[in-house]
Design a protein around this nucleic acid. Structure first.
Lengths: 199, 199
DNA sequence: CCATATTGTGAATAGTGATTCACAATTCCC
DNA sequence: GGGAATTGTGAATCACTATTCACAATATGG
């Protein structure tokens, strides 16, 4: 059956989405032109009408992830003004995103694993640093307000923050969805907060 | 130049080591028979004299990692009797291992990424659960001693513990060794400890 | 020292996935 | 309605890697 024609802009979006799902399901190595074509309902060669190649598709996925990540921070900034509630809210959102869009963590981990230092990865690196920096800023704000102990290096707190998400997201996936990531946020947050604030 | 002959037992060890280094350098996808052969100083086909195939080599790597991981826990147990110092010591050792044997984290992440549910992975899963369980046990002991707050779910604490290592190890690698993982342990531990103990 | 098992080598095979290309169908615009 | 541009198709090519195999060199034990 021949696929009906669609504009390149539409196909590009479909392809990027399909690629993201594929990565979410099987990691970076699970991403193949054949797989993408199947999901979109095309023949492999048709993909090349809309992207120059696999690399270009990956770039598109990266861009997607980056925008979602930063949008996340933005909306948390808008929601709550105080540092600690902000962090907590960001934690919830970050975790939820990892769970519903596994492609994220896969790409990050794949990035980590990749030996080749293509420019493609540097953009992701950028995204990650930017995100970490956002967390650092929130921590610094909390220290200025007196809500967070001043003797904690903000970067340390930020890395620990990431550490609240990463293993939980991995366990969630490894357990096939059994691990309750929301509950982990619930019970881990007080411990983290106490570490940030108590005397 | 022809390689000098060596016993299979020796070659097996060399091959497993080479495989571990390769994975450490380029992730699971960086592991190839050609790469192994180069490192050991053999021709690719010679590898098959000592291992049935790539899968078998991987199994050997897994076994290596497992034994090192568990040995780690054992020696920490022997070193210090109290829960909190034990955790701290384990944290240091765990981090050091991640830094000097990147293969470990790569395999874990690759495991996470893999779609296929081969038996091979279940053994790794086993190792990871066992490790997590060890941490849980230490935490429980601390709660029994009164050193750790009883209202913290031990599993939560254990997952957070892993979270102290994972992101730091990744940053270390992503930064090309610039990130000071030991310093991170140094500054993150007090925060974590305070979260576990303070009133 | 020699028969034999063990180990190493190079070439050949096979499967996978990305990419290209000439051609066919579809849509758009006049 | 009829080009012309756009999009989809199937086959072919290419590169890469695991794996096998017949043969060569080397070690080993009697």
């Amino acid at each position: 059956m021949r696929a009906s024609k669609a504009e390149t802009a539409v196909r590009q979006e479909q392809i990027a989405e399909a690629a993201m799902d594929l990565i979410g399901a099987g990691g970076l190595s699970g991403l193949s032109i054949v797989g993408i074509a199947e999901r979109v309902g095309l023949v492999p060669s048709a993909v090349y009408r809309h992207y120059k190649g696999k690399e270009a598709v990956l770039d598109a996925v990266m861009a997607l992830l980056r925008s979602r990540m930063l949008a996340n921070v933005e909306s948390v900034r808008a929601e709550t003004p105080e540092a600690l509630p902000r962090l907590r809210r960001l934690l919830e959102r970050h975790m939820a995103m990892m769970v519903e869009k596994p492609a994220f963590i896969h790409v990050v981990l794949a990035h980590f694993s990749q030996a080749d230092h293509a420019e493609r990865w540097s953009s992701l690196n950028n995204t990650m640093c930017a995100y970490l920096q956002e967390v650092v800023r929130i921590v610094e704000q909390g220290q200025a307000d007196g809500a967070i102990r001043p003797d904690i290096p903000p970067r340390t707190a930020a890395v620990m923050f990431i550490g609240l998400v990463l293993p939980a997201a991995m366990l969630y996936r490894l357990s096939g969805g059994k691990f309750d990531s929301a509950a982990h946020v619930e019970s881990a947050w007080p411990v983290f907060e106490r570490g940030l604030t108590a005397n």
